[in-house]
Computed example of a mutant assay.
Amino acid sequence: MVKKYGKRLYAFLVFLFLYAPIIVLIVFSFNDSKSRANWNGFTLKWYIELFKDTSIMKSLYYTLLVGVLSAFISTVLGTLAAFGIHSMKGFKRKLLINLNYLPVLNADIVTAVGLMILFNFIGLQLGFLSMLLAHVTFCTPYVVLSVLPRLKQLPKNTMEAALDLGATPFYALTRVIIPQIKPGIIAGALMAFSLSIDDFVISFFTTGQGVTNLSISIFSMARRGINPKINALSTLMFLAVIIILLIVNRKASNEGGKK
């Protein structure tokens, strides 16, 4: 009995340690004061001022735009790359898998400086396009790593069986293979999106004048003191992510129940 409740208490303390900062952030987003130490009453004024702040709204716009576009592009590229790697054998397959690990294991600062030098070398002006390409670069390997295990779980002759039954290669790919690896694709897309909206280092080195995201804006504000409007924005983004995860998990559970 003691051991059972001890495990529960330990798990509770771990989760409390992980989520306490988020809880404090959410609570103080409703604080009627700029102070992060004193509670002066409940208010919604920071949420109202948030949507009136054009600079934060502009940063939010670029954050979501780059996040959605980079997640979509890297999901397509990563899924196609996973198909190619899965079809290979021997040394070539091991080589490509190890090369795919490099952006994942490499330090962000090294990737950021390398991409900045590359963009300057090819004459690409730093701005929205350079940031988007940089995000696609570091998000795609995660999609590959998410899709590959699903491909390995497929029966080896699935594609051949579909072709023998009269399906065209495109039909077999879209109606037979992709539905079976869809959880891996969705997981890779969500991971790519979350990595993109959370990135600071690579975005900071690969963006140009007039293009910024929330991470860079928050970093700039931190040198002058965190504005409570950031607490409100972070709360809304946290709730949005929770809602998306609940929808995805509910859909996955429903599909699992049908099977």
Rank of each mutant, 00 (worst) to 15 (best):
V144H: 09
I97H: 02
S74D: 02
V104M: 14
A172G: 14
R93M: 12
L163F: 10
D198N: 13
L60T: 08
T137E: 02
G184P: 03
K152M: 11
V76G: 02
Q180A: 09
Q125W: 00
G188I: 04
V14Q: 08
A162I: 02
I85V: 12
L239A: 14
A252M: 08
G257M: 13
N100K: 03
K229E: 12
P183V: 07
K251A: 12
L195E: 01
A71R: 01
M237W: 11
M159S: 08
R224A: 13
P155K: 10
Y171K: 14
L233I: 03
L190P: 01
F200R: 05
G166H: 06
I48K: 15
K152D: 12
Y5H: 14
L50N: 09
I22C: 08
P228K: 12
S196K: 08
G127A: 10
N98Y: 07
T43H: 05
F30M: 02
P169S: 11
F30A: 00
T140N: 10
L50H: 05
D53C: 04
E160S: 09
K251G: 00
Q209R: 15
M88I: 08
F119S: 01
A172R: 09
I73M: 06
R223C: 03
F121I: 01
P183C: 07
L95A: 14
K3E: 15
A187I: 05
S196Y: 04
T206K: 09
T75F: 10
I85F: 12
L99P: 03
D108Q: 07
S87V: 08
T174C: 04
V113S: 03
T54Y: 00
D108P: 07
N106L: 15
L13Q: 08
I197G: 03
L239S: 04
K89L: 05
I197S: 05
Q125V: 13
V2W: 14
T174M: 07
F91A: 14
L233T: 04
I56H: 04
A134C: 07
L13S: 15
G188K: 08
L77R: 01
F205V: 06
H86N: 15
I117Y: 10
L9M: 15
Y5V: 14
L132P: 01
L77T: 09
A232R: 02
L95R: 06
L25R: 04
I247H: 00
I185G: 02
I22N: 07
Y62A: 03
L96C: 11
V24K: 14
K34T: 04
I23Q: 01
A252F: 06
N98E: 07
V27Y: 10
